[in-house]
Simulated scan of single mutants.
Amino acid sequence: MRSTFTSRLAGLALCAACAAPALAQVGLQRESWTLAHTDGPADKVGGIVWYPTAAKSETQHFGPFTLKAALGAPPRPGRHPLVLISHGNGGTDLGHAWLAETLATAGHVVVAIRHPGSNYQDMSAKGRPVYFTERPRHLSRVLDQLLKSERWAPLIDDRRIAAIGTSAGGHTVLALAGAKPQPSRAALHCSVQGRGLAEDPTMCLQGGFTKSQPAPVPDGQGEPVDRRDPRIRAVVADAPLVMGLAPESLGGIRVPLLVQYGARDDNLVPRFHAEALCAALPKATCFRDERAGHFAIFQTGTGRLGPPGLDPAEDPDGFDRAAWQTAAGRRITAFLKEALR
């Protein structure tokens, strides 16, 4: 998984502090968007915008999440790279606040949305094909509104836009980069004809499928759906869900891609997901951590948030999530610096 791009990235990561500009403070603003549909009611999408500011960041508490930001502070003038963040199944726009803060201090505007139908308050898309096709559309439609916003558009360099996603969010951003959602593939994986129920059971369970209640065998493969957004110039896929993407479409990803995953991921078994993606895209920058599980990128310090095996606060024995995130923050920042230059 090496290339000239990867070599330059390694150099940047090693010299992240060399002649670096002073880090910004972090501003934070809650936002909401109404995403209209032609064939149904509009989606109400909530989210958070982090951005560089001169105001002093202070400790903030939002439920179990502790952040460092200046609420509603005036942004630092100028046009900044934009990063969109897509959470995983049952997640939240606060789940990767540490990463948003890291990127904002490096000069990015960062927008994390709460996906309707697959967040901790609303799982109405669970097990439905719309789960795979609508998630990337949410991000594209929010991006439309950001680039028209009187408040945010003047702060965004529309030539430097990236997307980061974890788990189902990884599927989401890969679709924006050119891979095509194919919901029937995920259904087949979790049917009696697939391998998922025996070898990738937690992925199937997230869709509501078990050995006693398998997914229906799909009637045909179904046409892959194009959700590419050419405004997205770079993508980071963390522990990505890949079984819902047409395999032949993975080669359609032409933007710089960083894939990171843990060898001890029991939620999305790497050989079906991240490793299959890296094998299909040998020029991608792929980072494998032998100690990490599925939730390494999720915010630290929240306390328990779910049952064993599905708790995003849970790590494999001996894994240091805080240390991993420090290294991952440097890695992702260096990747975006190179990819969006």
Rank of each mutant, 00 (worst) to 15 (best):
P214E: 06
P282M: 05
A42M: 09
L14W: 10
L9H: 11
G170R: 09
P77A: 15
A279H: 13
G47I: 08
D144S: 13
P216T: 07
S57T: 13
A313D: 14
L305P: 15
T285R: 13
V110Y: 02
G220F: 01
R331M: 04
K68V: 06
T53R: 00
Q260H: 12
R227I: 00
P307L: 00
I161M: 03
H80R: 12
A263W: 02
K56S: 14
P316M: 07
A186Q: 14
S249A: 13
D157T: 11
T34Q: 13
L188H: 12
A175I: 12
D43T: 13
R231V: 02
I48M: 07
P154S: 01
P136D: 06
D317Q: 15
D265C: 13
F272R: 07
W152R: 07
F272W: 06
Q60D: 01
L258H: 08
R151E: 05
S212M: 06
T66E: 15
A187K: 04
T285I: 08
A328H: 01
G40R: 04
R254V: 11
R321K: 13
P230W: 00
P214V: 11
A13V: 14
Y261L: 02
P64Q: 07
A10D: 11
A187H: 04
L268G: 08
I113M: 07
Y51D: 10
S3Y: 00
A339M: 09
L268D: 06
R30K: 09
W33P: 11
S249M: 07
D93K: 01
G11V: 06
I85W: 00
A339P: 12
R137M: 08
